[in-house]
Amino acid sequence: MGNDVLESFKGAYEAEVSLTGKEILQQLVKNAEIACEEKVPMCQDTGYAVIFVELGQDVRIEGGDFYEAINEGVRKGYTEGYLRKSIVSHPLERKNTGDNTPAVIHTKIVPGDSLRIIIAPKGGGSENMSAIKMLRPADGIEGVKNFVIDTVKKAGPNPCPPIVVGVGIGGTFEKAAQLAKESLLRELGEKSKYPDIAKLEEDLFEEINKLGIGPQGLGGRTTALAVHVEIYAAHIASLPVAVNLNCHAARHKEVIF
């Protein structure tokens, strides 16, 4: 977990009005300290290994199988790091693969000669509370706000609030979902570069924290630690909106070669 999350726990602790909420935020800080000290996972759900690859177009990878190399890294990391193996090979037969593979890998070709790999392990509890909806263009910004707030409200205590709310607007069905996931990679509270979208992030943050869900859903004002929105061009007929919730264990690390 990054310092941005730890700092936001401390800020939320100061601002929280519910005593139970304060008590929980305090426990989350203590938990992070123990996890750091003992080098153990802060949460037992060490996630689905979601990997974002940005491959410079001047890079040449020789021999072997790049995706298999990533899976080998996941296998090694989850086994040698005493992380939980949370993946079943077939969604209906549900037999554990035993090494947390395969990873979900998203690849982008970008200009340049470097290779950037981001790992963002994603817990199942918050992933399960995520949602997507194809709105009508006429639904506009109000429609978007209503859907995001409704998704957070329905999720209630389930995704381990305080949460990070990732929103993708535009593109196609799958593009919106991917934007929502990518928005979770931002440092907590980093604003959109578009002023109108930054305003939307602020408005949603305020509205979500008025819901009263609070830490662990036991009541309070700290429901979201941040709201991040990413946008993309849309079809004249469509206004896709995806909401990807992340629990407070908002983890991601990157390496650049």
Partner: peptide, 30 residues
């Protein structure tokens, strides 16, 4: 556990004298 229970579970707990308790989600090391 953590998170809401269905009305069916809540009714069963009333009938069979059971309770549902929560521990802090994500405080796994603690």
């Amino acid at each position: 556990g953590k998170g809401r229970r269905s009305s069916e579970v809540i009714n069963t707990m009333k009938e069979y004298k059971g309770v549902y308790l929560t521990a802090v989600g994500g405080a796994a090391a603690l």
